[in-house]
């Protein structure tokens, strides 16, 4: 928000969509997750641990809510009267939604979390002072705090397991916030390669760790600006637009067959992740 915005057209502020302010060019990284394909196997979560050097906190700390799973599989039991093991469940892979108007970014006192020009919500570990305001204001609660100094804690990466740490990603010390980065280290490599060869990153060149591990191919990642990318086509087919803050899908029987929605659109964070699942009246 600029001073002129304040003085001249303050009433227009917030009527412009954040994504229209500075159009993403040539990249806007986005994702789509097909919940009908998700089997809840947790492979994505495991892949994320391996790729991003996430500390394995152990049973006690996990039960305590200290788990550092950037990618988490949420399980919601069906409440139709049946008991386990007949009881059905819905799964939802949840990670940072890389919001365009991220509630976490405005509140950070030191500006440790920012938006990159290609639409990723970045986290600067060195700058973070650990006020945890970002997590307090995150509607999805997908930010994870280093409550302890995990790299020096026993059994986080037991002997020899520390050999598998990814050299492209730092390990985080105590007192900083971290979260899903859309595997920014892979994105950066691909962008650099493309730049060296004088071209743009083409679709399918970058795979996030979770996408790579997903056995059912539920996760698609790509450049939303590129009209040929799979993710762009999916978003378009589902009539989901980044700049929209409410996308009414027909919930009635016999209505449209569209499945695409984004979580908490009505709060207007403009998330960059689209989920595919029929929104059923019974589930609302």
């Amino acid at each position: 928000m600029s001073v002129s915005n304040l003085l001249e057209n303050w009433s227009d502020f917030r009527h412009t969509h954040p994504v229209d302010d500075v159009p993403h060019n040539p990249y806007k990284w986005a994702m789509s997750i097909d919940l009908d394909a998700c089997s809840g196997c947790n492979a994505c979560s495991v892949a994320c641990y391996a790729e991003n050097n996430l500390p394995v906190v152990g049973k006690d700390k996990y039960a305590h809510g200290y788990a550092m799973h950037w990618m988490r599989i949420e399980r919601y039991w069906d409440e139709d009267g049946r008991d386990f093991p007949d009881q059905g469940a819905q799964f939802l892979p949840m990670m940072c939604q890389q919001c365009e108007a991220a509630p976490c970014e405005t509140v950070c006192p030191v500006g440790a979390t920012n938006h990159t020009p290609d639409g990723i919500n970045s986290q600067i570990y060195n700058r973070c002072i650990g006020s945890r305001y970002c997590e307090a204001n995150c509607p999805y609660k997908v930010r994870y705090f280093n409550w302890y100094d995990y790299p020096t804690t026993d059994n986080v990466w037991p002997a020899e397991m520390n050999q598998q740490l990814n050299p492209d990603v730092t390990v985080r010390g105590k007192g900083v916030m971290e979260k899903c980065t859309f595997c920014i280290q892979r994105v950066t490599v691909a962008k650099n390669n493309a730049k060296n060869e004088g071209r743009l990153v083409h679709d399918g060149e970058v795979w996030t760790a979770c996408q790579q591990a997903c056995p059912t191919g539920a996760i698609t990642f790509g450049n939303l600006v590129d009209p040929e990318s799979k993710v762009h086509k999916q978003w378009q087919a589902q009539q989901v637009e980044l700049a929209k803050d409410a996308q009414t899908k027909d919930k009635e029987e016999g209505g449209s067959e569209l499945r695409g929605y984004r979580i908490f659109e009505e709060l207007r964070p403009y998330p960059s992740v689209m989920y595919l699942e029929r929104v059923r009246e019974s589930a609302v």
Binding site: K61, H64, G65, Y66, A67, G130, R132, E135, A136, K141, R143, Y144, F145, N146, W147, Y148, D149, K174, G175
Partner: peptide
């Protein structure tokens, strides 16, 4: 030791 000893967690950050 780290903030963990205050017994908050990743959803109760304050």
């Amino acid at each position: 030791t780290g903030m963990g000893v205050s017994n908050k967690n990743n959803t109760h950050v304050w």
